[in-house]
Deep mutational scan, measured.
Amino acid sequence: MPGGGPEMDDYMETLKDEEDALWENVECNRHMLSRYINPAKLTPYLRQCKVIDEQDEDEVLNAPMLPSKINRAGRLLDILHTKGQRGYVVFLESLEFYYPELYKLVTGKEPTRRFSTIVVEEGHEGLTHFLMNEVIKLQQQMKAKDLQRCELLARLRQLEDEKKQMTLTRVELLTFQERYYKMKEERDSYNDELVKVKDDNYNLAMRYAQLSEEKNMAVMRSRDLQLEIDQLKHRLNKMEEECKLERNQSLKLKNDIENRPKKEQVLELERENEMLKTKNQELQSIIQAGKRSLPDSDKAILDILEHDRKEALEDRQELVNRIYNLQEEARQAEELRDKYLEEKEDLELKCSTLGKDCEMYKHRMNTVMLQLEEVERERDQAFHSRDEAQTQYSQCLIEKDKYRKQIRELEEKNDEMRIEMVRREACIVNLESKLRRLSKDSNNLDQSLPRNLPVTIISQDFGDASPRTNGQEADDSSTSEESPEDSKYFLPYHPPQRRMNLKGIQLQRAKS
């Protein structure tokens, strides 16, 4: 015994090295194993092979420090690593049964499904019991997946119906949107047309105001020219009257000059006056001389005659003075006559000038009245044309509004008919989907599995289990394997941990 101590140590070291070499393959693929292994699927088989106990299973599945599946799978690998070579062998058998691809990844061999460990530990009855539990578990999982698949199909059909409904609603909204954009385009076109009409109206108003201003300026210029013409006519008439007055005065002077006595007659009258003065002096001298030589009687007679002569001279002087006064009065009367005649001529000139001015103003008033009548006639014609244009424009607008209203009513009726057609199509689609759903539900009910399987069917299934373990590994792997896509769409199922009653199965096998 003492001599065998070193050999035992060498043997233990060799086993430990082999164990480390075995687990080295697992550690190399630890990331892939932790990512894809579900500990809840492996722990029943590991407990059946007595590699882990209930406490280890509870620690792996329910520990609060292991929230994710990767953490739980890593903890399970750590626990199996502590179990040595047996933990490695049982772990590979569980991978061979549940995850053939991972088994091939770790060992590089094809899975054979021999279950040597569980046969050694529990015997064939334990293997049968384990396989029966796994089959029931798989059936329950398949039923749950079928239910989930039916629910998802129903949800899918519902979503398809909602999608069709949303599509129809979208078509309806597109119809309304198209109608909205069309009405918006019509409104924009009408606004552009309105702005264009306003611009045209403004341009016409500006043109009309400009023409009116030009016409008023032309009328004012015409009036100024007419006033200048009238003033020139007035000056012409005044000059004609002055010329006529000057002509009359010149004719009067000419007549006075023609009626003036001649120079010879004046000289002859002056000679006669001198001769008479000479004779008068001679007679006076004779009379003076006679007075001195005459007697007293003759002197008395001469005195009487002288007195008579003096009286006659006085009378004559009075007559001469009277004649002079009369001549002066006649001259003054002639001057007054000439003055009055001049005033008369001036008044006649003024009267004729005023008459011509009156005629001029009368003509001017007639011209202004004619212009006013023409302006009123043009204004009435413009008003009439404007009223006709406004009436025609309003009539066109009324007809346009009428046609637009008819078009809008027809478009609304068309839209309502399209919407009604879309709604009826939606109703038809809904009815078809309901009919299809009812038909599929009836087919699913016919094809669904019963909840409680008979014992004979279970025994028959387990009677055929042994050949399947040898020759149909691919079928078992397809039913027991969970793909990543299934984990996305289906909830994980945790079967209840219970042991099955095998009395009925044993009785059935005894009868057979």
Rank of each mutant, 00 (worst) to 15 (best):
Ile37Ala: 01
Gly108Ala: 05
Glu59Ile: 01
Arg75Asp: 02
Leu80Met: 13
Glu24Ile: 10
Arg30Gln: 03
Gly87Met: 04
Asn29Thr: 03
Leu15Arg: 11
Ser68Ile: 03
Asp10Glu: 12
Leu92Arg: 05
Leu22Glu: 10
Phe130Leu: 13
Leu127Cys: 07
Ile136Tyr: 06
Val90Ile: 15
Pro44Ser: 06
Cys28Asn: 13
Ile79Pro: 00
Val90Gly: 15
Gly108Asp: 11
Lys109Trp: 06
Leu131Tyr: 01
Gln48His: 03
Ile37Lys: 01
Ile118Met: 05
Leu105Arg: 11
Asn71Phe: 03
Tyr88Phe: 14
Tyr45Ile: 09
Ser34Asn: 02
Pro6Ser: 13
Pro64Glu: 00
Asp20Lys: 09
Glu19Ala: 12
Glu24Ala: 13
His81Asp: 02
Gly5Ala: 11
Gly108Arg: 08
Met12Asn: 10
Lys50Gln: 10
Phe115Gln: 15
Ala40Asp: 01
Ser116Trp: 04
Cys49Gly: 14
Tyr36Asp: 02
Thr82Cys: 11
Leu66Arg: 00
Gly123Cys: 15
Arg35Trp: 06
Met65Asn: 06
Lys69Leu: 03
Leu77Arg: 01
Gly123Thr: 15
Tyr98Pro: 03
Glu18Phe: 11
Ala21Gln: 09
Val89Ala: 13
Cys28Lys: 03
Gly4Phe: 10
Ile52Phe: 07
Asn71Pro: 02
Arg114Asn: 08
Lys50Ser: 10
Glu101Ile: 07
Leu46Trp: 00
Asp58Ile: 02
Pro64His: 09
Lys145Val: 10
Asp20Val: 12
Thr112Gly: 15
Met12Lys: 14
Thr82Met: 08
Glu27His: 04
Ile52Glu: 01
Leu22Gln: 12
Thr117Ser: 15
Ile136Lys: 08
Thr112Met: 15
Met65Val: 01
Ala40Phe: 08
Lys83Trp: 02
Arg35Val: 02
Gln139Thr: 11
Glu96Met: 08
Pro39Gly: 01
Gln141Asp: 08
Asp56Arg: 02
Thr82Arg: 08
Arg30Trp: 05
Glu24Leu: 08
Pro64Cys: 13
Arg47Lys: 01
Lys137Gln: 07
Asn38Tyr: 06
Glu121Thr: 11
Ser116Ala: 07
Thr14Arg: 12
Tyr103Thr: 06
Lys41His: 02
Glu13Phe: 11
Cys49His: 15
Ser94Ile: 00
Met142Leu: 10
Gln140Pro: 08
Gly87Leu: 06
Pro111Tyr: 06
Lys143Ala: 11
Gln55Arg: 02
Ile52Tyr: 01
Leu92Gly: 03
Met132Lys: 04
Ala63Val: 00
Gln141Lys: 11
Ile70Trp: 04
Leu42Ala: 05
Lys137Tyr: 14
Glu57Arg: 01
Ile37Thr: 01
Gln55His: 11
Arg47Ile: 03
Lys137Trp: 13
Glu125Thr: 11
Met132Ile: 07
Gln141Arg: 09
Gln139Leu: 14
Tyr11Gln: 13
Gly126Ala: 09
Thr82Asp: 06
Met12Ile: 14
Pro39Leu: 02
Glu59Pro: 00
Lys137Ser: 08
Met32Thr: 09
Arg75Asn: 01
Phe91Leu: 07
Gly123Val: 14
Glu110His: 06
Pro111Glu: 08
Val89Asp: 15
